[in-house]
Structure formats: structure tokens, C-alpha cells
């Protein structure tokens, strides 16, 4: 068991943010030569870390319109361009299934139905958010994972206000092609790593980050999670991964997103 020090650093200067980025990278393990698309700092770092270490065939983008072959730091501009991926090509790649996106979710339920569109009724939202964006198409066409920076019962809710991303129960109801191809790979939060591998495609706790207890996760989840008898700790970054992370994020942007 590790005990994080008061400043959030655990083993030898390893922070929660580092552990979280490694957990995001793990979501792309085994993906091969596809577009690993990370929305936001932590998912983007996860994709780039995976490519720089155990999943070298992944394609990663600069977040604008280019595939970059080098280990581009977050916010960096020194790009080795290996391909062009304007939005039209993103949609082609997406509908062709050669993409795995890790995106945010303002709400998520026990079957991985997610909402980034609005809080409250759609007709007259209490809070208008982004709109559904690419969520509906992403979730029925290729692997989708989620990064949730604040694991709480306000995010993990029994019922989302608007389904912008399709969960396992709805995909199963549609059946056919969609049920066969639907794949919500991983949900990484500031507390834990989860997947949809529980009975009936329900959200299952895979690991808790060092310093987090299973009951911490349960208390911050607004429905019952599938929890096994022994929940392991999320693995720590290797020294090699820490060295890559320092190169990909030299100014430590990840630390401001996951303060702990």
C-alpha cells in the first residue's frame, strides 16, 4: 500500500496525475494501427504515452489537423507531421471504425450512457453544455473511453439527462451490427479505473488509485458498481514512462488537472 504525501506525490515523486495518465494510456493497449484520439490534456497525454511506449503503431494527432510522428509535448508546436487528418477525414476514420476516442462525460450511468450536451431537460436546460458533438457517432462506430477528472455522485448518476453517448444497454437493444461493434473500453477517473465488463454490460471497478479506498469510490458513485472481492491498486508508472511523461508534459499541465 502506498500512502501519498500531503503534496500529492506518492512513490518517489509519482503523483496521482501520473498514475491517471498511465491508466489512460492503458486504455489504448492492443489497439494497433488506429487513430488514438484524446480530447483534453490527460487523454491526449495518455494516447501519446501509449504510442511512445507499449503501443508504437498508434496514430496520434496534434489536436488540430495533423498526425504527428514525434513525441510532441502538450501544447507544443515542433511537429513532425506524418499525415493530414482534417475533420472530414476524422469522420471517415470514425465511421470506418479505425479510431479509439477518449473523451469527457458530464454524466455517466451504470451502463455507460453518457451526457456532454445539457443538464436538465433538453427543451429548456438548466445548464447548456457543448451539445452532443460527435458522441452519438463515436459510440456506435468504434471504441470509446472516458476520462472523468472529478469522480462524484453528480457525474455517476442513475440516469443521465441526455444520452449523447450510447451505453451497453441501448446498444444491446438495437442488436445486430451495432451490438456486435459497440465497445466502451475504459472509464478512468481521478479515483479509479472502471470498464463495462460487469453483468449486463454494467460499470465495473477494475482498480483504485493508490491512496483511494473502494468505499471512497462507492461513496462518490450514485449507483451500485460491480465490485469484485479483491480490487487491486492501479499500477504505478515505470521509470521509463515517467521519463516519457516529463518529455511530453515538461511544464506539468497534468498536475493542474488532477491536483489531489
Amino acid at each position: 500500500m502506498s500512502t501519498p504525501s500531503p503534496d500529492g506525490a506518492g512513490h518517489d515523486g509519482v503523483s496521482r496525475a501520473d498514475i491517471v495518465v498511465v491508466a489512460c494510456a492503458e486504455a489504448f493497449r492492443g489497439d494497433g494501427e488506429i487513430f488514438a484520439s484524446g480530447m483534453g490534456t490527460i487523454p491526449m497525454l495518455g494516447a501519446r504515452l501509449a504510442r511512445a511506449s507499449f503501443e508504437p503503431d498508434l496514430l496520434v494527432s496534434d489536436g488540430e489537423a495533423f498526425f504527428v510522428a514525434n513525441d510532441l509535448e502538450v501544447g507544443g508546436t515542433d511537429k513532425l507531421v506524418e499525415g493530414w487528418i482534417p475533420f472530414r477525414s476524422v469522420f471517415d476514420t470514425l465511421w470506418g471504425g479505425r479510431r479509439h476516442v477518449m473523451m469527457g462525460a458530464t454524466q455517466i450511468d451504470a451502463h455507460g450512457n453518457t451526457n456532454i450536451a445539457n443538464i436538465g431537460p433538453w427543451d429548456r436546460p438548466k445548464a447548456q453544455l457543448l451539445g452532443v458533438r460527435g458522441g452519438p457517432g463515436n459510440t456506435v462506430n468504434h471504441a470509446t473511453s472516458f476520462w472523468i477528472p472529478r469522480h462524484s455522485a453528480r457525474v455517476f448518476v442513475p440516469k443521465v439527462d441526455m444520452v449523447s453517448g450510447v451505453g451497453t444497454d441501448r446498444a444491446a437493444d438495437i442488436g445486430g451490427w451495432i451490438a456486435a461493434h459497440h465497445h466502451l473500453a475504459r472509464v478512468v477517473t481521478n479515483l479509479a479505473v472502471l470498464d463495462l465488463g460487469g453483468p449486463d454490460g454494467r460499470l465495473r471497478l477494475l482498480s483504485v488509485h493508490p491512496g483511494v479506498s473502494v468505499s471512497d469510490v462507492e461513496e462518490n458513485t450514485g449507483f451500485e458498481l460491480v465490485i469484485g472481492p479483491d480490487t487491486p491498486e492501479t499500477r504505478l508508472p515505470t521509470d521509463h514512462e515517467m521519463a516519457i511523461l516529463d518529455r511530453l508534459d515538461p511544464s506539468g499541465l497534468r498536475l493542474s488537472e488532477v491536483p489531489v
Binding site: 475533420f87 472530414r88 469522420f91 470514425l94 465511421w95 452532443v132 458533438r133 460527435g134 458522441g135 452519438p136 457517432g137 459510440t139 456506435v140 462506430n141 444520452v163 449523447s164 453517448g165 450510447v166 441501448r170 446498444a171 437493444d173 438495437i174 451490427w177 451495432i178
Partner: peptide, 27 residues
């Protein structure tokens, strides 16, 4: 969905009544 909007414009530009997609199903 973002891709549905592309399809709406593309179908319009080809003067087709519609274009089919999986985006939107289940959502």
C-alpha cells in the same frame, strides 16, 4: 451529431432526400 450534420449538408449538396448513417441510433 457532428457527422449527421455533415451528412445533412452532403445530401443537400447532392440533391438527395437523405443519406443513411448509424450516428444517432441509440442516442
Amino acid at each position: 451529431d457532428e457527422g449527421m450534420l455533415q451528412w445533412a449538408l452532403y445530401a443537400g449538396s447532392l440533391r438527395l432526400p437523405f443519406l443513411p448513417t448509424r450516428a444517432g441510433l441509440g442516442s
